[in-house]
Amino acid sequence: MILGVIEYEQSTMTELSLQMVTFGRDLAEKSGDEFVGLIIGASDNAPLIGELGRYGVAKVITAAHENLKDYAPVAWANTISQVIDQTQAKMVMAPGSDQGNEVMAHLAARSDLPMATNCAAVSADDLSRITRLRWGSSLMEEAILTGDCKLITIAPFVVEAAEGASHAEPAEESFEPTLSDQDIQVRLIRKEPDETEGITLKNASVVVGGGRGVGSPEAYSVLEELAKLLGGAVGCSRVATNNGWRPHSDQVGLTGTRISPELYIACGISGAIQHLVGCKGAGKIMVINKDPEAAFFGKADYGVIGDLHEVLPAIIEELKAQGV
């Protein structure tokens, strides 16, 4: 049995959770195992179970306890550990999100088991042979994961979330773990909604990103104008953040925000792998750069060779001429 730890926000599975379920379900089918979803501490399990059914999951375990009402990493890890003991699961996987990695690391630490984060592939013949992404996806490590129960997290965007071939109402089994107050010593005390209203880097359908080539904080005004005309948001590369040109919240990349707009317009950005990871989820990528050798052109759908300080004003003029 392969156990998948479901991550959710307000009774909806997160995108990375859907990808993890897709990955786990397909792996289990090939390895001849059963894939079981584990929902911990949800106030309303029904919508999550329904969603898992659409993704072809036949069985779901729902864990409930007074100490699971608010997210607490140690309580979560302890719950999974008890489910492993009861089910003898061969493998546990979680999405490679902050929460997924955190819970699995606590589980690994308390069980003294190894854990492989950021996995892109698992051998169906032998669940211990894994491939994981390192160096911001520029290197892959093939490794053997020891331990009776294999603990892994799935790298974001290595599979596309896809519903299952068969839709059925999954069998539900409830589970009540034994938890102490020590397990909730660290817990979520409140959530604060995003202060920025409207279009943000995370939800924008168009992102206009600027890097070293923008040259100064003032020069971002032309990117802002274009973003406004397209109903989008402005992003930047790590160089721009480190130079103090833009706040870190604007940074697209491995150590910044991972974006998934329909169109990403990258201006004056060379295309270092750490940046590319952050825009992997973009539908189309347009690169504007005066250096025809910029690596980013090799990853783009559309390319324009030219100085962004000339190209962007020309686009704005053209848009205005057409009444946008």
Binding site: L133, M140, E142, I144, L145, G303, I305
Partner: peptide, 24 residues
Amino acid sequence: SLKMQQLVHPPEQKKEVDMLGEGS
């Protein structure tokens, strides 16, 4: 206990880029 076997470069995923022109 996580035993690295080897490191490999991921396959080069080059896209066919549609060049739209130069400058303004």
